[in-house]
C-alpha cells in the first residue's frame, strides 16, 4: 500500500498504535476507579509543562512529563491530605495549570504553530527521535502495568481488601497516577492536549461495555483504540482531515457500537431467561 511507503506514516502508525494501546489500558483502570476525569485535568496541567519548556527553551515533552508527573502526585496527595474529593482536587489543580500555562506561553511569545501542535496533536509530524522516546516511555508504562497487573486489579476492585492482603495501596495509586501522567504526555503527540482525555476514556469505555472479565476489557479497549488510530490515520491521509479529530470520532463511533451490542446482548439474555426479565442466576 502506498500509504505505508512514507516514513512519516510509518512513524505515525507505530507511535499511534503503541500510545493508544497504553492509553486504553490505563483508561480501563481509571474508569473503574471513577477517575476518568484525571486525564482531562492532567492535560490542562501538561499545558503548563509545555509552556514552561517553550519559555526556557528546553524539550517541551520533557518539561511536560515532569510537570504532569508532579501534578498527578499532587492530585493524589491533595485528595489524601486535604480530605477533598478527587474531582475537586482535579478541578483546582487543572485550573492552576491552565492559568500558569497561558501566562508562561505569553511570556515566551509562543502563541504559534508549535503550540498548536501540542494542543491539537500532530501525529504525522512525529520525528524519528520523538518516535524512539515515545516507544521507550510507552514500553516502560506497559512493563509496569504487566508487572503490577494483579495488584492494580485488586486495588481497583476492592482497595480495602487489597490493603488487608499486604498490598501497598497508596503507593500503587501514586504509581497509577504517574503512569497516567506519562500517558497524557504521550497522547499529546497523537491527538493533542485538548483531546487526550478522550483517548484515555472512550476506547476503554467501549471495551468495558462488551467485556466478560477484566482482561477481556483491556484487550477490547486496546483493539478499539488501535482500530480508531488506523482509521483516523487513513482518513487523514486520503481526505486530508486532522488525524486527531478523526481518531477520536472513530473511537466515539466504536463506543456507540459497543453500547448497541451490549443492549442487544442484554435483550437476548432476558429473552432466553424467561418472562420475569431477570438474568440473575438462580441460587440453585
Amino acid at each position: 500500500m502506498s500509504i505505508l511507503s512514507y516514513g512519516f506514516m510509518q512513524r505515525a502508525l507505530l507511535a499511534g498504535i503503541l500510545i493508544a494501546s497504553v492509553c486504553a489500558t490505563l483508561g480501563v483502570f481509571l474508569i473503574l476507579r471513577r477517575e476518568a476525569m484525571i486525564g482531562h485535568g492532567l492535560a490542562h496541567l501538561t499545558f503548563a509543562g509545555v509552556a514552561l519548556g517553550l519559555l526556557v527553551h528546553l524539550w517541551p515533552m520533557g518539561t511536560a512529563l515532569l510537570v504532569a508527573a508532579l501534578s498527578a502526585l499532587g492530585i493524589v496527595k491533595l485528595r489524601e491530605k486535604a480530605g477533598i474529593y478527587e474531582d475537586t482536587a482535579i478541578g483546582i489543580l487543572s485550573s492552576i495549570g491552565m492559568a500558569a500555562g497561558v501566562i508562561l506561553v505569553s511570556l515566551a511569545g509562543s502563541f504559534n504553530v508549535s503550540l498548536m501542535s501540542y494542543l491539537f496533536g500532530n501525529i504525522l509530524a512525529i520525528a524519528p527521535s520523538e518516535l524512539w522516546s515515545s516507544l521507550a516511555l510507552a514500553s516502560t508504562v506497559f512493563v509496569v502495568i504487566i508487572l503490577f497487573y494483579q495488584e492494580l486489579l485488586f486495588t481497583t476492585f476492592d482497595s480495602e481488601s487489597a490493603k488487608v492482603s499486604g498490598i501497598r495501596v497508596k503507593r500503587l495509586e501514586a504509581m497509577l497516577a504517574a503512569l497516567t501522567a506519562a500517558a497524557v504526555v504521550l497522547g499529546m503527540k497523537v491527538v493533542g492536549l485538548l483531546l487526550v482525555a478522550a483517548l484515555l476514556v472512550i476506547p476503554s469505555a467501549a471495551g468495558l461495555q462488551m467485556a466478560g472479565n477484566f482482561f477481556q476489557a483491556i484487550v477490547l479497549a486496546i483493539i478499539i483504540a488501535v482500530v480508531s488510530v488506523l482509521l483516523g490515520l487513513f482518513t487523514s491521509f486520503y481526505w486530508n482531515l486532522p488525524a486527531s479529530g478523526s481518531i477520536i470520532l472513530f473511537a466515539s463511533l466504536c463506543f456507540l457500537g459497543s453500547l448497541a451490542l451490549r443492549r442487544l446482548r442484554a435483550g437476548l439474555i432476558r429473552l432466553c431467561s424467561g418472562p420475569d426479565n431477570s438474568y440473575k442466576i438462580n441460587e440453585e
Partner: peptide, 19 residues
C-alpha cells in the same frame, strides 16, 4: 459491589492469592 465491574468469579478469587 459495582454490578458493571467486568470481573469474573475466577478473577475475584485469584485476588485472594496475592497476599
Amino acid at each position: 459491589i459495582d454490578s458493571l465491574f467486568p470481573v469474573s468469579a475466577r478473577e475475584v478469587v485469584a485476588m485472594g492469592l496475592l497476599s
